[in-house]
Write a protein that binds this DNA or RNA. Structure first.
Length: 218
DNA sequence: CATAGGATCGCCT
DNA sequence: GGCGATCCTATGT
Protein backbone atom coordinates (compact mmCIF):
# COMPACT_ATOMS: atom_id res chain seq x y z
CA UNK A 1 0.00 0.00 0.00
CA UNK A 2 2.79 2.43 0.85
CA UNK A 3 4.16 1.91 -2.68
CA UNK A 4 0.77 2.30 -4.30
CA UNK A 5 -0.15 5.56 -2.59
CA UNK A 6 2.30 7.84 -4.47
CA UNK A 7 1.07 6.35 -7.74
CA UNK A 8 -2.52 7.23 -6.84
CA UNK A 9 -1.45 10.80 -6.06
CA UNK A 10 0.39 11.02 -9.38
CA UNK A 11 -2.64 9.70 -11.22
CA UNK A 12 -4.87 12.24 -9.49
CA UNK A 13 -2.48 15.06 -10.44
CA UNK A 14 -2.37 13.84 -14.03
CA UNK A 15 -6.17 13.77 -14.22
CA UNK A 16 -6.37 17.21 -12.71
CA UNK A 17 -4.03 18.51 -15.38
CA UNK A 18 -6.00 16.77 -18.08
CA UNK A 19 -9.29 18.12 -16.73
CA UNK A 20 -8.17 21.74 -17.23
CA UNK A 21 -6.78 21.29 -20.71
CA UNK A 22 -7.36 23.29 -23.88
CA UNK A 23 -9.21 21.08 -26.35
CA UNK A 24 -6.60 19.76 -28.76
CA UNK A 25 -6.51 19.10 -32.47
CA UNK A 26 -7.22 15.41 -31.90
CA UNK A 27 -10.55 16.23 -30.23
CA UNK A 28 -11.78 18.07 -33.31
CA UNK A 29 -10.36 15.91 -36.10
CA UNK A 30 -12.38 12.83 -35.13
CA UNK A 31 -14.85 11.66 -37.77
CA UNK A 32 -18.19 11.65 -35.89
CA UNK A 33 -19.47 15.25 -35.91
CA UNK A 34 -22.69 14.28 -34.10
CA UNK A 35 -20.69 12.75 -31.26
CA UNK A 36 -18.48 15.84 -31.08
CA UNK A 37 -21.57 18.08 -30.93
CA UNK A 38 -22.77 16.07 -27.89
CA UNK A 39 -19.34 16.11 -26.25
CA UNK A 40 -19.03 19.89 -26.62
CA UNK A 41 -21.84 20.28 -24.07
CA UNK A 42 -20.25 21.24 -20.73
CA UNK A 43 -17.01 22.47 -22.33
CA UNK A 44 -15.89 26.07 -21.75
CA UNK A 45 -15.79 28.51 -24.67
CA UNK A 46 -13.32 31.30 -23.97
CA UNK A 47 -12.41 34.50 -25.83
CA UNK A 48 -9.80 37.16 -25.20
CA UNK A 49 -10.40 40.43 -27.03
CA UNK A 50 -8.81 43.81 -26.28
CA UNK A 51 -7.41 42.37 -23.06
CA UNK A 52 -10.82 41.22 -21.85
CA UNK A 53 -11.41 37.57 -21.03
CA UNK A 54 -14.96 36.24 -21.37
CA UNK A 55 -16.10 32.66 -20.95
CA UNK A 56 -19.19 30.47 -20.84
CA UNK A 57 -20.22 26.83 -20.58
CA UNK A 58 -21.58 25.43 -23.85
CA UNK A 59 -25.18 24.28 -23.32
CA UNK A 60 -26.59 24.01 -26.85
CA UNK A 61 -25.05 22.76 -30.13
CA UNK A 62 -26.01 21.59 -33.61
CA UNK A 63 -24.09 19.20 -35.89
CA UNK A 64 -23.78 19.88 -39.62
CA UNK A 65 -22.64 16.77 -41.43
CA UNK A 66 -20.96 18.12 -44.55
CA UNK A 67 -21.56 17.27 -48.20
CA UNK A 68 -24.41 14.81 -47.59
CA UNK A 69 -26.36 17.12 -45.25
CA UNK A 70 -28.86 19.36 -47.06
CA UNK A 71 -28.82 21.78 -44.12
CA UNK A 72 -25.06 22.33 -44.39
CA UNK A 73 -23.49 25.21 -46.28
CA UNK A 74 -21.15 22.60 -47.73
CA UNK A 75 -23.93 20.36 -49.08
CA UNK A 76 -22.96 18.73 -52.35
CA UNK A 77 -19.33 19.77 -51.90
CA UNK A 78 -20.11 23.42 -52.51
CA UNK A 79 -17.03 25.64 -52.16
CA UNK A 80 -17.42 29.41 -52.13
CA UNK A 81 -15.38 32.21 -50.61
CA UNK A 82 -17.56 31.93 -47.48
CA UNK A 83 -17.59 28.13 -47.11
CA UNK A 84 -13.95 27.50 -48.03
CA UNK A 85 -12.98 27.60 -44.33
CA UNK A 86 -15.24 24.60 -43.69
CA UNK A 87 -12.74 22.49 -45.64
CA UNK A 88 -9.95 23.30 -43.16
CA UNK A 89 -8.75 20.83 -40.54
CA UNK A 90 -10.84 20.29 -37.40
CA UNK A 91 -10.36 22.93 -34.71
CA UNK A 92 -10.79 25.90 -37.04
CA UNK A 93 -13.48 28.57 -36.52
CA UNK A 94 -16.12 28.96 -39.24
CA UNK A 95 -17.91 32.25 -38.54
CA UNK A 96 -20.36 33.78 -40.98
CA UNK A 97 -22.88 36.57 -41.06
CA UNK A 98 -26.54 35.65 -40.76
CA UNK A 99 -29.51 37.91 -41.55
CA UNK A 100 -27.11 40.73 -42.23
CA UNK A 101 -26.35 41.35 -38.56
CA UNK A 102 -25.46 38.24 -36.59
CA UNK A 103 -22.12 36.45 -36.56
CA UNK A 104 -22.71 32.72 -36.08
CA UNK A 105 -19.86 30.73 -34.52
CA UNK A 106 -19.15 27.22 -35.77
CA UNK A 107 -16.34 24.78 -35.02
CA UNK A 108 -14.97 22.89 -38.01
CA UNK A 109 -14.49 19.18 -37.30
CA UNK A 110 -13.02 16.14 -39.08
CA UNK A 111 -9.93 16.04 -41.30
CA UNK A 112 -8.98 18.65 -43.87
CA UNK A 113 -11.28 18.64 -46.95
CA UNK A 114 -14.19 17.08 -44.99
CA UNK A 115 -16.44 20.11 -44.24
CA UNK A 116 -18.17 19.05 -41.01
CA UNK A 117 -19.03 21.70 -38.41
CA UNK A 118 -20.78 22.25 -35.06
CA UNK A 119 -22.80 25.43 -34.51
CA UNK A 120 -22.66 26.74 -30.93
CA UNK A 121 -26.21 27.85 -30.12
CA UNK A 122 -25.99 28.64 -26.42
CA UNK A 123 -23.65 29.23 -23.48
CA UNK A 124 -23.98 29.98 -19.78
CA UNK A 125 -21.58 32.85 -19.04
CA UNK A 126 -19.12 32.24 -16.17
CA UNK A 127 -16.36 34.85 -16.50
CA UNK A 128 -16.13 38.45 -17.64
CA UNK A 129 -19.75 39.11 -16.73
CA UNK A 130 -19.38 42.89 -16.71
CA UNK A 131 -17.86 42.84 -20.21
CA UNK A 132 -20.63 40.50 -21.32
CA UNK A 133 -23.27 42.82 -19.88
CA UNK A 134 -21.75 45.76 -21.75
CA UNK A 135 -21.54 43.87 -25.05
CA UNK A 136 -25.16 42.75 -24.72
CA UNK A 137 -26.08 46.40 -24.07
CA UNK A 138 -28.37 45.58 -21.16
CA UNK A 139 -28.66 46.81 -17.56
CA UNK A 140 -28.70 43.45 -15.80
CA UNK A 141 -27.61 39.94 -16.76
CA UNK A 142 -30.54 37.58 -17.20
CA UNK A 143 -30.56 33.79 -17.41
CA UNK A 144 -31.06 33.70 -21.19
CA UNK A 145 -28.24 36.16 -21.93
CA UNK A 146 -26.22 33.47 -23.79
CA UNK A 147 -29.05 31.49 -25.40
CA UNK A 148 -29.15 31.85 -29.19
CA UNK A 149 -26.26 31.63 -31.68
CA UNK A 150 -26.31 35.36 -32.45
CA UNK A 151 -26.13 36.16 -28.75
CA UNK A 152 -23.22 33.77 -28.15
CA UNK A 153 -21.09 35.74 -30.60
CA UNK A 154 -22.32 39.11 -29.45
CA UNK A 155 -21.47 38.62 -25.77
CA UNK A 156 -18.12 36.91 -26.43
CA UNK A 157 -16.99 39.52 -28.96
CA UNK A 158 -16.91 37.00 -31.82
CA UNK A 159 -17.15 38.54 -35.32
CA UNK A 160 -17.41 36.98 -38.77
CA UNK A 161 -14.11 38.63 -39.77
CA UNK A 162 -12.43 36.24 -37.30
CA UNK A 163 -13.40 33.21 -39.41
CA UNK A 164 -10.50 30.80 -39.91
CA UNK A 165 -9.08 31.34 -36.41
CA UNK A 166 -7.21 28.37 -34.90
CA UNK A 167 -9.16 27.23 -31.82
CA UNK A 168 -6.37 25.01 -30.48
CA UNK A 169 -4.09 27.93 -29.56
CA UNK A 170 -4.40 30.11 -26.48
CA UNK A 171 -3.06 33.67 -26.85
CA UNK A 172 0.62 34.05 -25.86
CA UNK A 173 -0.08 37.08 -23.65
CA UNK A 174 -2.94 39.02 -22.05
CA UNK A 175 -3.40 41.29 -25.07
CA UNK A 176 -3.44 39.03 -28.11
CA UNK A 177 -6.80 37.99 -29.56
CA UNK A 178 -7.92 34.41 -29.07
CA UNK A 179 -10.83 31.98 -29.12
CA UNK A 180 -10.36 28.54 -27.59
CA UNK A 181 -12.16 25.78 -25.70
CA UNK A 182 -11.32 24.15 -22.39
CA UNK A 183 -12.28 20.92 -20.72
CA UNK A 184 -12.57 21.77 -17.02
CA UNK A 185 -13.76 18.32 -16.06
CA UNK A 186 -17.49 19.00 -16.07
CA UNK A 187 -19.29 15.68 -16.35
CA UNK A 188 -22.52 15.64 -18.35
CA UNK A 189 -25.04 12.88 -17.67
CA UNK A 190 -26.04 11.52 -21.12
CA UNK A 191 -29.60 11.11 -19.81
CA UNK A 192 -29.79 14.88 -19.23
CA UNK A 193 -29.03 15.72 -22.87
CA UNK A 194 -32.08 16.75 -24.89
CA UNK A 195 -31.95 16.23 -28.65
CA UNK A 196 -34.19 17.22 -31.53
CA UNK A 197 -34.32 18.73 -34.99
CA UNK A 198 -32.16 21.73 -35.86
CA UNK A 199 -33.55 25.25 -35.90
CA UNK A 200 -34.19 27.26 -39.06
CA UNK A 201 -33.33 24.58 -41.62
CA UNK A 202 -36.82 23.82 -42.96
CA UNK A 203 -35.42 24.13 -46.49
CA UNK A 204 -33.34 20.98 -45.90
CA UNK A 205 -36.08 18.47 -46.76
CA UNK A 206 -35.73 15.17 -44.92
CA UNK A 207 -32.47 16.31 -43.34
CA UNK A 208 -34.40 19.02 -41.48
CA UNK A 209 -35.80 16.24 -39.27
CA UNK A 210 -32.46 14.73 -38.20
CA UNK A 211 -31.97 14.94 -34.39
CA UNK A 212 -28.72 16.90 -34.63
CA UNK A 213 -29.53 19.55 -32.02
CA UNK A 214 -28.34 18.97 -28.45
CA UNK A 215 -28.92 20.89 -25.25
CA UNK A 216 -28.56 20.70 -21.49
CA UNK A 217 -30.08 22.96 -18.85
CA UNK A 218 -27.52 24.66 -16.61
C1' DC B 1 -24.32 44.45 -62.05
C1' DA B 2 -28.92 43.33 -59.73
C1' DT B 3 -31.50 40.96 -56.52
C1' DA B 4 -33.72 37.51 -53.36
C1' DG B 5 -33.15 35.41 -49.21
C1' DG B 6 -30.85 33.87 -44.95
C1' DA B 7 -28.19 28.04 -39.38
C1' DT B 8 -31.61 35.47 -35.83
C1' DC B 9 -33.20 38.64 -32.37
C1' DG B 10 -35.93 41.84 -29.81
C1' DC B 11 -39.82 44.42 -29.72
C1' DC B 12 -44.60 44.69 -30.51
C1' DT B 13 -49.34 43.05 -30.15
C1' DG C 1 -46.93 34.75 -32.86
C1' DG C 2 -45.75 38.39 -36.12
C1' DC C 3 -42.61 41.52 -38.09
C1' DG C 4 -38.79 44.69 -39.21
C1' DA C 5 -33.88 45.42 -38.93
C1' DT C 6 -29.86 45.09 -41.95
C1' DC C 7 -26.17 43.51 -45.25
C1' DC C 8 -23.54 39.76 -46.95
C1' DT C 9 -23.80 35.72 -49.99
C1' DA C 10 -25.03 33.20 -53.82
C1' DT C 11 -26.91 33.13 -58.07
C1' DG C 12 -28.30 34.78 -62.41
C1' DT C 13 -28.06 38.18 -66.43
Amino acid sequence: MCFLFPMLVLTAEKNKFKSMSVLSRSFYTRTDVVRIARELLGKYLVTQLNGRLTCGIICETEAYAGVSDRASHAFGGRRTHRTEIMYSTGGTAYIYLCYGMYSLFNIVTNQKDIPHAVLIRGIKPTEGLETIRQRADIKEIKKDIGIGPGKVSKILGIHYTQTGHDLTQKPMNKIEFGIWLEDRGMNIDPNKILSGPRIGVQYAGKDAMLPYRFQISL
